[in-house]
Simulated assay, not measured.
Amino acid sequence: MKSMLCQFKKVQTKPLPHILKVMNISEKKLFELFEMWINQGNITPVHPVFKELKKRRDAEIKRKRQEKQELELLKYKELRQRKYSNKQIAKEMHYPYDKLNSFLKKWYNTLRRQGLSNEAIAKELNASKNELTPIILAYEERQRMHEEMRRRRIAENKRYARTHLKRIREDLKGPSEYFIFDTEAVQCPDELIEIAVIDCKGRTVYNSLVKPSHKINWRISSLTGITNQMVMDKPSIHQVMGDLRDLIAGKTLMSWGIDYDSVLLKKSIDSTGIDLDCKFCCAQKIHMGLVEDINQIALQRAADCDMQNHRALDDCKLVLDVLRKDIEMIDNKSAGFKQRTSADNSSNTIFIPRSEPLAATT
């Protein structure tokens, strides 16, 4: 296999068809070799050839799945036209009889998402009104519940954004109560290898690498640029948590998302027994409330940048940039309007009165 790896490295900059021809190998076999090379640490998973192979493989799997489903539908329609009973159809299609309704339901949902009307779907599936009625009612009930849940989450996110953006606005012109933080970490087990904290004026409060008890693997090093040599003489997590406690006690810490950085920091609090005496909030949820979205938004997309460095201090600054743009968006929307009444302010509309211009990053 080493000879195959050497052979690949000689042609890795060539187009994929050329690589396959020179190595006299199929796409499937090259993909399997890549998985082995990645596990051995010889090739990184971000290698452009592997990414292309994975994209083509996923597209082929999707095509075959879709082709299989379409053949199933054709067979079902043919059996319907031949006046087979549902029991006979289930037998011919190798479906348990009680699962045939699931087949109809799946195709109804698929065709409905494609924009077909109920009448067109009934014709396409050659199904009677009585057969489709319970499926239609169940679909419409799910849609109603989904829309209701979406409205509730948007309203909740808007209230969350209104509350925190107002306080962040105050931070821009007064003492800092909100700090933005970000971490980098090794995994299995999760351990911090870097943490940075800035205030809402862009000033660095804390920025340090952390020496973990486990080695940093090559995947994390390739993603962050942080190596084992870089953290060799850095403070331990106990020292870092002690320093942080003195700096952020009583403050509110913001991170992008609540399922990674905050969780890691809380784990560090538990493992060290050092309570930071701070609150946590989610900058991502603030942004979601402003743009009225219920789905998580990647920091890179929210910041509208081409790439993310995956270093703690740089990511902190990206979060601050998103929050400033959010406040600026609110200012632009509210410019030229009169002061809202107390009744207006009790609604779900996010409104923060315009005051001083945004402070420049120092």
Rank of each mutant, 00 (worst) to 15 (best):
I248A: 00
P134R: 14
K87W: 07
K75E: 13
M1Q: 13
K267P: 00
R324D: 09
L313T: 07
S334H: 11
V231N: 09
A302E: 05
A90V: 09
A343K: 11
S268V: 06
R219G: 01
M288E: 07
N348V: 09
R150H: 14
F103Q: 05
R340Q: 13
D344M: 13
S208W: 02
Y260H: 13
E27Y: 06
L265G: 05
S26K: 09
R63P: 03
K64D: 12
K77T: 05
D190A: 15
D293C: 13
C200S: 04
H18Y: 11
K123F: 07
P357H: 08
H18W: 09
K10A: 14
K51D: 02
A161L: 02
L30G: 03
R82N: 09
N109S: 11
E35I: 12
V197E: 04
M93S: 07
I180R: 04
E292P: 04
T163Q: 10
G202L: 02
R169N: 05
I38K: 00
D58W: 10
R63F: 15
C188H: 14
L30P: 00
L318R: 07
R301C: 00
P212M: 04
M329T: 10
E356R: 14
L125A: 02
L100I: 15
L358E: 10
K21P: 00
K211D: 01
A155G: 07
S3P: 01
I136K: 02
H287N: 12
C282P: 00
D326C: 10
T133Q: 13
P15A: 03
N109V: 11
K106D: 06
H18N: 11
L313M: 11
L33H: 07
K106H: 04
Q40T: 05
Y108Q: 00
S347T: 15
Q143E: 15
K267F: 09
V11Q: 05
R245I: 04
R113W: 05
F8A: 02
K28E: 15
K251E: 03
G242T: 15
H47Y: 05
A155V: 08
E184F: 08
T361V: 13
A120H: 07
E60R: 14
R150I: 12
K2P: 02
P48Q: 12
K91Y: 07
S102D: 08
I237D: 02
V186G: 06
V322K: 06
W37N: 06
D321V: 02
Q81T: 09
T133D: 11
Y139H: 05
D261C: 06
M241Y: 09
V49Q: 02
R152I: 13
K87Q: 13
S346A: 15
S346W: 09
K129E: 04
D233T: 14
R311S: 03
E170G: 00
K83Q: 14
P17W: 08
S236P: 01
Y139A: 00
R65L: 14
I237N: 02
T44Y: 13
P48E: 11
V205I: 08
I330L: 15
K87E: 12
P189Q: 10
I195D: 00
L299I: 03
P212R: 06
I195V: 15
Q308K: 12
L132D: 04
A120R: 14
E292G: 04
R65S: 12
L299A: 08
